[in-house]
Amino acid sequence: MSKEIIGTPQQWEQLEKELEVLKNEPGPVMKAMQAAQAIYGYLPIEVQSKIASTFGVSLEEVYGIATFYAQFNLKPKGKYTIGICLGTACYVKGSGLVIDKFKERLGIEAGETTADQKFTLDATRCIGCCGLAPVLTVNDEVYGNLTTDDVDKILAKYND
């Protein structure tokens, strides 16, 4: 089992503190995973190992839960998460081409994060603004009526 700490010492300390509190609660594993994700933004192997050993379950059990629920991330998220809707309405209006262009520009696949930790690219299901199809979100901002020409403009806006 991996013993190294990950992230900042503060993050690790915070994790240990929250796990300690959960020790007396029923069904603590899921709660611990949520708490850990709030601290780290994702669930690295070190954190999953820590949760497993704290609550006496196997690492595979934690990993199984982490991959079952969409709310858990196995990889760090970038500063900006670009979520492109691949629901039916968006897809027929060309969101597939848009996501391909983002993949090309960022050099990553859907679900991945750029090496500089700036962008995460996600394919999402319908987000309920089909009138604007195709749509995408960057963190909380929504962009609609997209074409492939918009890709560079959007990326430029987050050029900080």
């Binding site: 379950v57 196997s58 595979e60 990993y63 199984g64 079952f68 629920y69």
Partner: peptide, 10 residues
């Protein structure tokens, strides 16, 4: 009590 295999993903 080894527990190295399980169901992953959904």
């Amino acid at each position: 009590s080894v527990g190295v295999i399980g169901a992953n993903f959904r």
